[in-house]
Design a protein around this nucleic acid. Structure first.
Length: 145
DNA sequence: GCCAACGTTGGC
DNA sequence: GCCAACGTTGGC
């Protein structure tokens, strides 16, 4: 399994919006950046991702799961844009802020810090565990820890 | 709301 | 294929 991070501006599409979509999840459309698209093309069903609120909040608020492989973005009129579908699987009990991430030396290589503008990012397994720990969630059971 | 960073576009 | 202009992202 691989790990990822999805950024969204909460006033456009928030964690609560994703939760309200339930098991069916939501097409992660609108991405018009090659690197982000390539990341989505590399995803497999069952891969997990952090859901991060950009602009407002600036924190990891939930954990989601890829529930459909990349496919053409239904909102794009250009066939080069693909996207996956994701669904919410667990909230993060104590949202992990960008400030917290920046302050943690173990996370100094995270894309969130170094590739600020990339909206769909890979997350290393150690980073995944560390952010889960900070957020008070067990990375295996997804129960509060 | 500002502006730095950075990706994309398009003229040459 | 270079690079200036431009648009967008996203933290502050």
């Amino acid at each position: 399994m691989q790990y990822w991070l999805f950024k969204s501006e909460p006033f456009k599409f928030s964690w609560d919006d994703l939760v309200s979509k339930g098991k069916a999840g939501e097409e992660w459309d609108g991405v018009r950046n090659y690197q982000a698209r390539n990341n989505m093309r590399a995803m497999k069903v069952g891969d997990r991702g952090f859901f991060y609120h950009s602009n407002k909040g600036l924190e990891v608020v939930g954990i989601c799961e890829v529930c459909a492989l990349s496919h053409p973005d239904s909102t794009a009129d250009d066939p080069r844009w693909d996207c996956v579908d994701i669904r919410a699987i667990a909230p993060v009990p104590h949202p992990v802020t960008l400030k917290d991430v920046k302050a943690n030396e173990n996370l100094s290589d995270m894309s969130l810090v170094n590739s600020m503008r990339l909206s769909v990012q890979p997350v290393k397994e150690e980073e995944w565990k560390e952010v889960c720990r900070m957020g008070g969630i067990d990375p295996l059971t997804l129960e509060p820890a």
